[in-house]
């Protein structure tokens, strides 16, 4: 039951996108998000949509799998769209009591909805095609220059990768403890809010205990292997750019160039 949560999950497939350097994917996602917010015109969004659709196609991750991530934010999405729709001042085209929809509001709501959706799709595509380890490796390398201003880059990356690694473990553990308590007659579904909250105690106490136990074991195991922070550590699989990564960077540049051209052309019209 709990296995079906997909946010932040890796989807194994054999595609070019999967093989790309994680640094590139991080930079690419970042640029994509910026482009979403700066080129918000009709033709601009056509270009953005084409780009996103083709990247998803190339990644070989089934669309309905990525779309599942949208379910989690559907409430926020509806909220934003509704507010923009009704509360933007301007030229009214529909009126019902104190509610009115304006031309500007309609346009704003549509763009906002698309923007948020693309934001989720784009960033979940990154986590679907990159293993958590690669992701933190990429982040560490990208942020590496910041160590000069005393940012503990390695420690942050290590904490992130451990946290990510623990998510599936804790989910599995929750599933197991839930089943074990259900076998003892626990009931997590019925009753009022107070009763339900109380019924979670037999689940949460063992979960916390086991999280601490695991953290303790891990710290012990790391110390036993003489871990003492990032100083002088080398990687088993150091990140190196390949030909395809340079091609991908070129494509990214091209994408930005196209958007800028579209913007300029629209300005001229």
């Amino acid at each position: 039951m709990i296995r079906d949560i997909t946010i932040g999950q890796y989807y194994p497939a054999n595609s070019v996108i999967h093989r790309l350097d994680p640094r590139l994917k991080l930079v690419g996602t970042f640029l994509f998000i910026i482009s979403l917010f700066t080129f918000n015109t009709f033709y601009g969004y056509i270009a953005v949509t084409l780009f996103l659709v083709s990247v998803i196609k190339v990644s070989k991750v089934p669309f309905r799998f990525i779309a599942r991530g949208l379910k989690a934010v559907v409430v926020i999405l509806l909220f934003t769209v509704t507010f923009n729709l009704f509360l933007t001042p301007g030229d009214p085209i529909f009126k019902l009591g104190f509610l009115k929809i304006t031309r500007e509001g309609l346009r704003f709501a549509a763009f906002m909805g698309i923007r948020l959706m693309f934001l989720i799709l784009g960033s979940s595509l990154m986590t679907f095609t990159t293993t958590p380890n690669q992701l933190t490796d990429g982040l560490e390398k990208l942020l590496w220059p910041l160590r000069h201003i005393k940012v503990p880059v390695h420690e942050i990356a290590m904490m992130m990768s451990i946290a990510l690694r623990f998510i599936p473990i804790l989910l599995e553990e929750t599933d197991k403890i839930m089943k074990a308590q259900m076998a003892r007659g626990a009931d997590f579904e019925s009753g009022g809010i107070l009763k339900r909250a109380k019924s979670l105690i037999p689940l949460l106490v063992p979960l916390f205990v086991s999280a601490f136990r695991r953290a303790n074991d891990l710290a012990m195991a790391m110390e036993a292997r003489c871990y003492r922070g990032g100083e002088g550590r080398t990687k088993m699989k150091p990140l190196r750019y390949h030909g395809r990564d340079y091609v991908a960077y070129l494509i990214l540049l091209l994408y930005i160039a196209i958007l800028i051209t579209v913007r300029i052309l629209e300005g001229l019209l």
Binding site: K176, I177, K179, A180, Q181, M182, A183, R184, G185, I201, P202, V205, P206, V209, S210
Partner: peptide, 17 residues
């Protein structure tokens, strides 16, 4: 059924609370 078929999971001590 669950009261009639008792299931002791692996490492059952992890479910004590």
């Amino acid at each position: 059924l669950r009261s009639k078929v008792g299931l002791v999971f692996q490492y059952p001590e992890h479910q004590l609370f």
